[in-house]
Amino acid sequence: MTAHEHILSRPGESTVFHLDSTWWIPAAEDRVWEVLAEISSWSQWWHGMTRSLRRDGTAWLEVRSPLGYRLNLVLTLLSETPRHSARFTVDGDLRGVGSVLTAAHGSGTRVDIMWCVVTRRRLIGRFRLLARWAHAVVMAAGRRGLRRATES
């Protein structure tokens, strides 16, 4: 698990979800970061990402879950080391923190993504195993899309 400032649930929120993903992308770290940094294009290559817009240090995302619900998220950049790492807060249907770390790994790039979040959406909080499965499906689609996007 990536180190992070742990968040605490507030009244009416689910217990904390720690969601970690590790991707290996067969492209140079600079190319991977270039595609990831262009958040406004995520909805073009990430299946399930139905809206992505970035202005300054804030991004607005809409994610369609394989279970049929949609999540609206607002990401605010906290810190960035260009071509290597970014930390951000998330608000909207989820609240918490996240990070992305990239590192050259063999003939490609390792991408570590961490979310420490809670939700006020009762069904998501109640059906944790299904929510974790849905997250894994969306993240696998992101990995496949990023692989394709870094080929061009």
Rank of each mutant, 00 (worst) to 15 (best):
E5W: 07
C116A: 14
M49W: 11
L101F: 12
I113D: 00
M1E: 11
T150K: 07
S40T: 12
N72R: 15
A104L: 10
N72F: 08
R148K: 15
A86D: 01
W60M: 15
S21E: 10
R147T: 15
D112K: 09
L53M: 11
V32Y: 05
L78I: 09
L73D: 00
E29H: 09
L36K: 02
V16T: 08
G68A: 09
W42V: 05
L130M: 12
R55L: 15
W115P: 00
V32T: 06
G68F: 09
T81N: 10
R132Q: 10
T119R: 07
R144A: 15
D20P: 01
A136R: 13
M1A: 14
H135P: 00
V117Q: 02
N72L: 10
T15A: 15
G145F: 03
T15M: 06
S43W: 04
R70D: 12
M1G: 09
E62V: 10
A141G: 08
T2M: 14
W60D: 14
S14N: 00
G98Y: 09
A140H: 11
R64A: 12
P82N: 02
S43P: 00
D93P: 02
E34L: 11
S152A: 14
W46A: 02
W60T: 14
A141E: 11
I25G: 00
G98Q: 08
T89Q: 01
R70E: 12
G98T: 10
F17G: 05
W60R: 15
S21C: 06
F127W: 12
S52A: 14
R126A: 14
W33E: 08
G98P: 01
R55F: 08
G96F: 02
E5C: 03
W46N: 04
L53S: 11
S40A: 14
L129R: 15
R95W: 04
A136E: 00
L71Q: 06
T15V: 08
T109V: 07
R121Q: 09
S21Q: 12
L101K: 05
L94R: 03
E5Y: 04
R31H: 10
S152W: 11
H135Y: 09
I124L: 15
A86K: 06
H84V: 05
V16R: 12
W24T: 05
A3K: 10
A134Y: 02
M139W: 05
P11F: 07
A86F: 05
L36N: 05
V137D: 04
W133P: 00
L73H: 01
T15E: 11
R10Y: 02
S107C: 12
T109G: 01
L8N: 11
V16I: 07
